[in-house]
Design a protein around this nucleic acid. Sequence first.
DNA 1: CGTCTGGTTGATACGACTCAAATTTGGTGG
DNA 2: CCACCAAATTTGAGTCGTATCAACCAGACG
Lengths: 260, 260
Amino acid sequence: MRPHTVPPEVEFSSGPAVATKFEAFTRLSPEDRAALADVTQNVRYVEARRDLVAEGDKPRHVYLVLDGWGARYKSLPDGTRQILNFLLPGDFCGVSAYLLREMDHSIGAITKLKVATITPDEMQGLRQGRPRIAEALRWEELVSESIQREWTLNVGLRIAYQRLGHLLVEIYLRLQVVGRASDGRCDFPLTQNDLADATSLTSVHVNRTLQELRRDGLIELERRQLHILDLERLMHASMFNPNYLHFDHAGQHLDAGNHA
Amino acid sequence: MRPHTVPPEVEFSSGPAVATKFEAFTRLSPEDRAALADVTQNVRYVEARRDLVAEGDKPRHVYLVLDGWGARYKSLPDGTRQILNFLLPGDFCGVSAYLLREMDHSIGAITKLKVATITPDEMQGLRQGRPRIAEALRWEELVSESIQREWTLNVGLRIAYQRLGHLLVEIYLRLQVVGRASDGRCDFPLTQNDLADATSLTSVHVNRTLQELRRDGLIELERRQLHILDLERLMHASMFNPNYLHFDHAGQHLDAGNHA
DNA sequence: CGTCTGGTTGATACGACTCAAATTTGGTGG
DNA sequence: CCACCAAATTTGAGTCGTATCAACCAGACG
C-alpha cells in the first residue's frame, strides 16, 4: 500500500489507456497503436480543481485523457452544480465539438489531469488513415452517449442507495477496461461532495448512504481507495446492467482484412 | 381550431422537417435536399404506443422521424420507466448504432409514427456525397448529446415546477425549429403519464404542478394542444438557457464554396 | 350506455434536504 | 516532530418536496 502522501493521480501503469480500451471493441494493429501514440504527443496538464474548458468557450481542441480524473459539469444560476459524467484515462472529449459555436458545459479536473491536445485535422487524418480507429472512435462516442442516458435514468429512477452503488460499479468497470482497476480495487479520488454533485444528492446524504453500503459489507472506501467487496451483490443491489457500457468486442469482425 | 376527433399526429405541413432543422445549422443546396429526399423513400409506420425498436435488439437500420412523436426510454426490473428523450419530426436515430451488438434502450411511438428506414450504406453514401449534410448529421448528434446532458441536469437539479417548465420549453423550441410550432402554440400529444416518465415525477405530482403553471398564467394545456402564454417568463421560471440546443447557424460558413 | 383511459383530488408517509456543529484527516510550516 | 489550518467527513434535529394509496370524475369509444 502506498503512503498517502503520494498524490492520487499516481499512475497505475499498463500502457496507454485508450489503446487498452479500444481493445474492448476491436483489435488494433501495431500501426494503429503507433498512429494513436502519434497524435498524443502534445501533452498538457491541468491542476486539480481547475477547468480544462469552460461553458461558453469556443471549442478548439480535441482532448484525450492520459491520466487523472476529470468531470463534465454544468452549473445553474442558483449555484447548484451537476456533474454529468466523469472523464477517466482513455476518454476522449470534444471529438466533433469544433462544429459548435460554444461549449454548453464545462470540463474540470478532479485530480491533476494529463491530457493530449489534438487538432481537428489530426483527428481527421487518424480517421482517414486508420479505419479501425475511426470505428473505435465512433464506438466510443456511442458508449459515451449511452452512459449519459444511463445517468439520466440513474438520477431519475434510483434511490440514493442504488444510485451511489450504480455509480461506484460504473466507475470500477470503466477503470477496469483501461487496466486501472482489478480485484475490486481502484483509486477513487472523488470527495463526497463530488459524489453528491454526480448523483444529485447532498453530501450529507451521500455520507449516510456510503455508511449504509459499508455496513452492508458491499464496499470499503477510505484514503481515496475504493474496494468493492462483492461486485455481484453490489450490481444486483443497484440494479446494474452492464449492457450499456458495450464492452463486448462488438467490432471484432473488423480484425480480419487489415494487415497494414 | 381542428375538431378533437382528429388524431394528434395530424401533419402541420411545412416541408420535410429534417431539411428545415438542418437550416438552423447550415444552408442546404437543392442537391442536398434532393439527396435527403432520396434516402427517405422507404417509409414505415408504427402505431401509437408500440415499439419501433426494443432494448436488446440488434440495431440494423437508421431511422428518421418524418411525422409523429416517439420516445427513447429505458425500463428497470422493478417496472419503473424513464423516458430519456423525445423523438420529434426531423430527428434521426441510430445513425451509428449498427456498430453495437444490441440496443441499450428502447424506442417507442407516442403517437402514430411515420419513419424513414435508411440503411447504413445509404447513410455512408449521403455522408460521402454531400459534405454539408455530413456536417449537419454530426451537428445533430452533438445537439442530441447535449440534450441528453441537459435532461440529466433537469431531473437532477430542478424541482418539479421548473423541471416541467423546462421540458415544455424545450419541446416547443424543438418543434419550432422544424416548423411545427409558432406563436407559443404546438401539438402536444403527451399524457401526464408520459410527462411523469420523462421528468421522473409521479403523474399525480405532474398533474398538480401543471395546475400551478396554469394558475401562474404561464401555459394553457388541453385537448393535446400546448399554448405557452409567456415564453420569456416560462424560460426564466424554469432557468432555461437555450444555448444547449445550438440552433445558432454555427455551420453557416459552410454555405460558401459549394455550388454543386 | 357501459367501459376505458386520462385527469383530478385528498390524506398520509417517507426519502432526502437544510442547518448547524463537531470531529477527523491531510497538508504545512515552525 | 508537533502545532496549526483548511478541507473533508460525520452526526443530530427538524423540515419539505414528492411519493403513495385511494377515490372519483370526464370524455371518447365501441
